[in-house]
Design a protein around this nucleic acid. Structure first.
Lengths: 213, 213
DNA sequence: CCTGTTATTGATCAAGTGATCAATAGAGTT
DNA sequence: AACTCTATTGATCACTTGATCAATAACAGG
């Protein structure tokens, strides 16, 4: 039988090891939450001593904040890239709502929600949360303003409306985290609500009306 | 100088002591979050040994779940009572939106958000969260259905719309927890969105249009 | 005034946390 | 091959947590 004697980990370039640690933290956060990120849990996943994780980060709070930023920034970039392929603002907004409500990113939503709470005791994380919220808001504001320029939307305050849409999406997703059942046609209801806010024509944002790829 | 020798706490009736503990836990949760509820922190606030708190609860998870339920049920009851004084469904819905977005209950919102996360590791709390969400949804559904009956609203699925409104409110409040600035006219935007969802006439839910007391 | 019930104590345990650091050993350089 | 730098170890410290329980002391009822 080949037991597993605690073999010493191979020595790696700092950048590579740092990447491994970041990746392990990311997986842990998505699977078991940001609170599951500890020196020991991350070290165990990488296959390394706990001291090494500490060696690569000033403290755990920073690792948590970085991990949050990594996860959320990737989501933002992914969705933004998706939107960029559509020329029509109304279609972009419809796709955005549809994508964010499809339930494929509930693990990321859980990280968001946890970050809101943890940010109370982790200043670095709180700062990260604000940065990432701003990034999301910017993506939304772009779409709304493009829609106004195209004459499809009509609202005097694109920035506020963008914040509002973001808040609604977050709330509905957080709700889905706890309760999936009982709510039908989430996308359609939200589309209707957003149409009301941006002053779009009724049905302009209905997901069904999307052109295929 | 009269120092404070650790005087033994006066013996009280179990029901009274239990109430004291519940109250201390409630205050802690509102001030420092549900995570701040520990045997020792609660005991210290009551002025009692930690063992006594344990004596009154099967475990800390149960105390946290009970505390959450107490806080949130009080909020629901308070708002429901406020609504009951208005006869008109549209006015009731407008008041509800206005009240829940006025920022006077951000401490309760923080408890909600924290409960969503903690519910992952505290089954009793998760159950409590579901119960309290249902209660809120019921309040909203009542209003929506009354509006339909009165011919003010028009939507085929009052239950789903109620869930949706609830999610939006939660999301906007959670957002306010992290970011106050940047968003103007939250109430007006939300009112417009909800009008779109319930099929009410534009302006029917604008807070300004409320009659005084 | 005694006596039994039980509210209350606080020490104790095991488990987990972040942080620190002397010691060890790879890997590249000369 | 000797040397240097530093990645890596893992033991260790100080703390916090929930839980447990024998010991203590109030209070009520006889």
């Amino acid at each position: 039988m080949s037991s597993t004697p605690p073999r010493r980990a191979v020595r790696k370039a700092p950048s590579e090891r740092a990447a491994e640690i970041a990746e392990a933290a990311r997986e842990l956060a998505l699977e078991r939450g940001l609170a599951a990120i500890t020196l020991r849990s991350v070290a165990a996943r990488v296959g390394v001593a706990s001291g090494l994780v500490a060696h690569y980060q000033p403290n755990v709070d920073a690792l948590v904040a970085d991990t949050f930023a990594t996860i959320v920034a990737a989501e933002t970039a992914e969705v933004a890239a998706l939107l960029a392929r559509l020329p029509d603002p109304a279609q972009r907004l419809a796709l955005l709502l549809d994508t964010l409500l499809d339930g494929a990113r509930l693990d990321v939503t859980a990280v968001w929600v946890e970050a809101w709470t943890l940010g109370r005791r982790n200043e670095a994380l709180a700062a990260s949360v604000r940065v990432q919220m701003d990034a999301w808001q910017a993506v939304l504001q772009d779409v709304v303003e493009a829609g106004i320029a195209a004459g499809q939307f009509e609202t005097p305050d694109a920035a506020s409306v963008a914040w509002q849409i973001l808040g609604m999406i977050d709330g509905l997703n957080a709700q889905a985290l706890v309760r999936w059942d009982g709510v039908n046609d989430r996308g359609v209801h939200l589309a209707r609500a957003v149409e009301g806010m941006v002053g779009a024509a009724r049905g302009a944002l209905v997901p069904g009306g999307l052109p295929q790829a």
